[in-house]
Design a binder for these strands. Structure first.
Lengths: 100, 100
DNA sequence: TTGATAGGCAAGTGAAAACTTGCCTATCCT
DNA sequence: AGGATAGGCAAGTTTTCACTTGCCTATCAA
């Protein structure tokens, strides 16, 4: 659903995570945690970040692959590209009642 | 800020309002209210819709113009077009530490 | 000018969402 | 084997957000 996508993007911390995954893909949970703490001064617990990643994954924005004890997170920008299309009107200046 | 934009898009009712303004621009508050009620079976108060419109306007997605006692609402899709660009990586497979 | 229409302001309520704390499992290294 | 590392689950708390209720202002029409 589109519902999950917009909800995922609503939180600023999650958008920062997407920023970081854009800079470097395939990061682990701990790597993302340190970056949020170091670069962005976000005092957030590891579980907090983990929950954010789960939301992003549910929205299809992040894909994961497990290797041993590591879990790598990759960005998927495909859902983003479909956002604007929804409201790019064919012609919004004409009332829809006139189009059968 | 981008914060307002994503927050505005997070709510399904607000997205439906954008849908309706896409179909017909320049609607008044009452017109939007009836459409949400009739077409979408959304049992929401007039003030609820008014607050939603305020959020959309703060995000720059809706622009308003007053004429007498009427206030018309128009869609502005410009902010939408900039959304996907943020995470369209130049090259996400290369770590950023190597680029001074 | 009075009533009806269109909209606005502000406080209050209830539900959802972000975040924490505590414990538990799996993998790796020595 | 045992400690250390990477991650997960499941409460609980706090904050945010959607929505309502009640009243108030402005414009128009009779």
């Amino acid at each position: 659903m589109a519902d999950d996508l917009f909800k995922a993007l609503a939180d600023p911390t999650r958008r920062t995570i997407l920023d970081e995954l854009t800079l470097k893909s395939g990061q682990t949970l701990f790597e993302i945690c340190s970056r949020l703490s170091m670069k962005h001064q976000l005092g957030i617990s590891r579980q907090g970040v983990s929950q954010h990643l789960a939301v992003l994954e549910a929205a299809g924005l992040v894909e994961t692959r497990r290797e041993g004890r590591y879990k790598f997170h990759d960005l998927n920008t495909a859902p983003l590209r479909r956002i604007a299309d929804r409201w790019l009107a064919p012609d919004a200046s004409r009332p829809e009642e006139n189009t059968p």
